[in-house]
């Protein structure tokens, strides 16, 4: 564990709490992409299957269970409790392509051609693009509630910090995780426009609006 990874994990955790806070406080999931949330639930379930096979640490186990449980709870909130506030007209990104592309990549790039490893690769590739429906929704509405932008920032920041963590681990442990590296760079790059607007507008007290 190094400082980058710890802060990254805490940001990831914070992003989920911010999202839950936004939904509960505003009693609405307006501005949140159900499709992105669905993709994250798929990411967590397919990646953390090793909960049943490998013990790493209490920290690791608790975080994994939390990520799976919270992602499914958010789907429940959006699909049932606050269904009336969700606008599917704005959430029209075709996730079939993201899912299909991730399956193909996972079948080609994996550490072993067994279900567990293929699903792990699939989750890594899918996570890198899972934010696209959310960013697409943002571009359609052209603006967002401030709390929603904090959520997206924390979620994007987490993987950017993982890049620092991987660099650290490469330098000090010789640890290399090539697929996660590539996916992490893509994932962070997808956020770059968002980060720029977040920095120039939201952090200066202005509303998030696309130029």
């Amino acid at each position: 564990m190094n400082i980058f990874r710890l802060v990254a994990d805490l940001m990831h955790l914070a992003s989920i709490f911010i999202l839950l806070l936004k939904i509960q406080k505003t009693r609405s999931c307006a501005g949140i992409s159900f499709k992105t949330q669905l993709l994250y639930a798929i990411v967590f379930v397919t990646r953390y299957l090793d909960l049943f096979t490998t013990w790493i640490s209490l920290y690791n186990t608790i975080m994994k269970i939390f990520f799976i449980a919270s992602s499914i709870y958010i789907l429940y909130l959006m699909k049932y409790k606050f269904r009336a506030t969700y606008d599917p007209i704005l959430d029209t990104f075709r996730i079939e392509f993201l899912l299909g592309g991730s399956v193909i990549l996972a079948l080609i790039f994996n550490y072993d051609f067994i279900p567990m490893e293929i699903l792990w690769s699939f989750s890594i590739f899918l996570e890198s693009v899972a934010i696209l429906p959310q960013l697409f929704m943002l571009s359609r509405t052209g603006e967002a509630e401030t709390i929603t932008t904090h959520y997206i920032f924390a979620l994007g920041g987490y993987r950017a910090l993982y890049l620092c963590n991987w660099l650290w681990r490469y330098i000090f442990d010789g640890h290399v995780e090539v697929y996660a590296w590539i996916a992490g760079v893509i994932q962070t790059a997808l956020y770059s426009d968002f980060f720029y607007i977040y920095y120039t507008k939201v952090l200066h007290g202005k509303k998030f609006e696309l130029p």
């Binding site: 990874r5 490998t54 790493i56 975080m63 994994k64 990520f67 550490y111 792990w120 993982y162 996660a180």
Partner: peptide, 10 residues
């Protein structure tokens, strides 16, 4: 190489 691959991250 394959077997040494350890997934200890989230």
């Amino acid at each position: 190489e394959k077997k040494e691959h350890k997934k200890d991250e989230l």
